[in-house]
Design a protein around this nucleic acid. Structure first.
Lengths: 359, 359
DNA sequence: CAATAAAATTAAAACGTTTTAAATAAAGGA
DNA sequence: TCCTTTATTTAAAACGTTTTAATTTTATTG
């Protein structure tokens, strides 16, 4: 590997001069500058980031701490982060946290959660150590579902911004707008004439669930629709929860004409439960998702859903982090990005509910 | 940040000794060792990777060059890489290549492809520069579809292994076994009594398509089934291709009783095309996918498919890279991992084809 | 107990940069 | 022409580690 010394010798100058032309830190005579650049080209010189970082105490590296890199959301968020990082000549250090397969925070029993938490904490510590050792300039933490992670990370001196996760302290965080997203969905359902709108909720202790529930309730009120406790089902975001709860709803003496699911996965479950009962979607019952998974375009019929601004979130979180790194005050500590609405085929106009006494 | 000097002073030894106990490079007296370790604990010392790397010329960092980090396969592959890396105390530097949204190599017209190639090359160079500047010990290249990438990367002196991508030169690469995977699918179809098995192929110039076609043909021959050119449809891996081609197959005077799709996405298209025609799957027609997307469990009916060993591929590629870095000869330059079969609901026993004159 | 061998420790150089202060060269004015 | 100012350039120190060679301490042996 060629060093700055090689370049200096080739150009017939001192290394200080080479450094100056490369970083534009000091004025250097135009003709020496071109001589240096030619040498750089000729020798294919690329500065050693480590030596540079050692001196400047800035690595131009940021760390990503992802709870689950295989989660549907991670790819797009990281994509957004990466784009912004590349545009600003930052490199990205990736750390994954979930070591076990596909057991994300949304899974199973309390015991399992606890057990997980211990190994999870260990994983966090190890990854954090890796990042700290690399002396990253900042860290972005990506959750798998918005929830409180404030307690997870010990406080230290590198700036951190949380994305797709809520935190109790006044940290920097960027999320999508759960409340607005939920309103988008329920509003649409109401506009289509539905009066009996059921809710497939995510896990009850999640901040996201709570906010979306607020959006649901508020929109119901706005349209003077009754809030029926029996229409509220709690699940764990997953397919099976959607299926199971949809079956329960369908068995009600007065089943809903529309279902708002807080996750696309649960919406798939609900859709299939309806299909298994020979119900037609959307003629007999409407289903509305939330997430905007790529796959939702391919269900049959294609799922009407709320699109999370994943890439934008990634982008915005990197932008915020850069502000913090450069000691510029960002606009706000907590950024909320709006969801968009993608209308497809699973929601239709409410026909008179013909199947009230279905079973 | 505390340095090795702080630790040395605290423990009352020289920095050389601290280094020795930390890296176990030289024997140090047991009691001094504990004194040093206590100091490390007390001061919360974490060695500066850059200073270390500067001296040792090893960073214990590897770079990932992913063609599209949002592609369905990337998450799992990176997951596999990361796990193995973490176990061996390597950090991971991530670079994404596709800058535009969702336009992967499988898209559109030739013009588009070309235009893409230019910006793509630029992206590759920039990312490679980033990685080289960071002095990563090695690089893993992740494709989005197995295809020839040998020409993409300039040759340089850091070791590289290709995963999910074929390369013409004798580089290190790890892939899944396209041939075996295709046989798995067609064999199963034949076992279920199907004699008219159509093929939804991926893009014709892809190595993967070619290998899977071989598997298809060989299995047909093994079962003494005729190879019918009109049963071969070429698409571009995507949903729409599957839909369109399935419609064409259904319009044949003697339509197939089973369809083997080379991608799950195309299988979704085929499934929906059948459903739109009021055909029952699998009673009237069977559909077999290839990829094992997470979502395939949620189609209605759930898709029978071939599962790619994505995580294992990631793991194996990291393992191979580590071997190369350590100058150990890996078992083989080209590693092929077997696919597995996941049987769900879209393939049934072949009934007498009742719908030959369907249209 | 002295001499030697072995064990443990240390001082100093090196890695490839940036940066500061000093030195040199060029330009301008009398 | 000589002095002063200004524009360039450079030498050397520093960043935090590893590593080599040298030194000090401890143990062994005749």
């Amino acid at each position: 590997m060629t060093t700055i010394h090689d370049v200096a010798k080739q150009a017939g100058v001192s290394i200080g001069t080479v450094s100056n032309v490369l970083n534009k830190t000091n004025k250097v005579a135009p003709d020496t500058a071109v001589r240096v650049m030619e040498a750089v080209q000729a020798l294919n010189y690329v500065p050693n980031t480590m030596a540079k970082g050692l001196k400047t105490k800035k690595t131009r590296n940021i760390g990503i701490l992802a709870e689950d890199i295989s989660a549907f959301s991670s790819g797009d968020i990281i994509n957004g982060i990466w784009k912004y990082a590349e545009e600003h000549d930052y490199a990205v250090n990736l750390c994954n946290l979930i070591v076990n397969n596909r057991v994300s925070s949304v899974s199973g029993s309390i015991y399992q959660e606890l057990e997980q938490t211990a190994s999870f904490q260990k994983s966090v510590e190890k990854s954090l150590g890796l990042l700290l050792a690399s002396r990253v300039d900042g860290i972005i933490y990506i959750g798998v579902h918005p929830r409180d992670v404030g307690h997870i990370l010990p406080s230290f001196d590198v700036p951190i911004v949380y994305v797709y996760s809520y935190t109790s302290k006044d940290d920097y965080c960027v999320n999508y707008d759960d409340f607005q997203g939920a309103k988008l969905a329920v509003e649409y359902l109401a506009e289509m004439g539905h009066k009996r709108i059921a809710l497939l909720s995510g896990s009850i202790d999640s901040v996201a669930s709570h906010k979306r529930l607020m959006g649901y309730q508020e929109t119901l009120m706005k349209h003077h629709l009754a809030f029926r406790p029996e229409y509220i089902c709690t699940g764990n975001w997953l397919y099976e929860d959607g299926y199971r709860n949809c079956v329960r709803l369908l068995d009600l003496s007065e089943p809903p004409t529309a279902i708002f699911s807080m996750s696309d996965l649960m919406a798939y479950g609900a859709l299939n439960a309806c299909l298994d009962r020979q119900l037609r979607v959307p003629e007999d019952i409407s289903i509305h998702g939330f997430d905007g998974l790529e796959h939702s375009a391919y269900t049959h019929p294609a799922l009407t859903t709320v699109q999370l601004p994943l890439q934008e979130m990634g982008r915005k979180s990197m932008e915020t982090l850069l502000h913090v790194i450069n000691h510029e005050q960002p606009d706000s500590r907590s950024i909320l990005l709006p969801c968009s609405h993608v209308v497809r085929k699973t929601v239709g106009k409410c026909s008179s509910p013909i199947y009230t006494a279905h079973h």
